[in-house]
């Protein structure tokens, strides 16, 4: 058993698709009808076998916790995503596990970019 689809709600599918493809550089894998009888677009992530499923909802729920993305170099990704026009909530901040920065997509879903650092 493993994680295969990560559902993301959006009120504007087109905007959301261009966010994933143009700004995050991900690819569209196709369309599937998996949940609620709704045909939804599937996006291939950089993790083999894990896909993002875009679900249309009139008012996207922004109260869900962020999706946590792993990076080897937070500052580099922060810089390139910011240059691509992505909206970050804050500048990269240090925590006991490393360096992280949080951003949102056009529907208000949150993503936390984390570079875990082993200090010992």
């Amino acid at each position: 058993m493993n994680i295969k689809y990560i559902p993301i709600y959006t009120d504007d599918v087109e905007k959301q698709l261009s966010f994933f493809t143009e700004k995050l550089g991900l690819e569209i894998s196709g369309c599937k009808n998996i949940l609620f009888g709704q045909e939804c677009t599937i996006i291939k992530t950089k993790n083999p076998g894990v896909f993002i499923m875009i679900l249309k909802q009139a008012h996207a729920n922004t109260n869900t916790p962020p999706i946590i993305l792993n990076t080897d170099d937070c500052l580099n990704d922060y810089h390139s995503l910011k240059t691509a026009g992505i909206n970050f909530y804050n500048e990269p901040e240090y925590s006991p596990i490393g360096l992280g920065a949080e951003f949102s997509d056009p529907s208000g879903n949150r993503y936390l970019l984390i570079e875990e650092r082993i200090y010992s």
Partner: peptide
């Protein structure tokens, strides 16, 4: 030379 400075300089 340790901690975050080490990682930032390395990158």
């Amino acid at each position: 030379f340790k901690g975050d400075l080490f990682f930032n300089i390395k990158h």
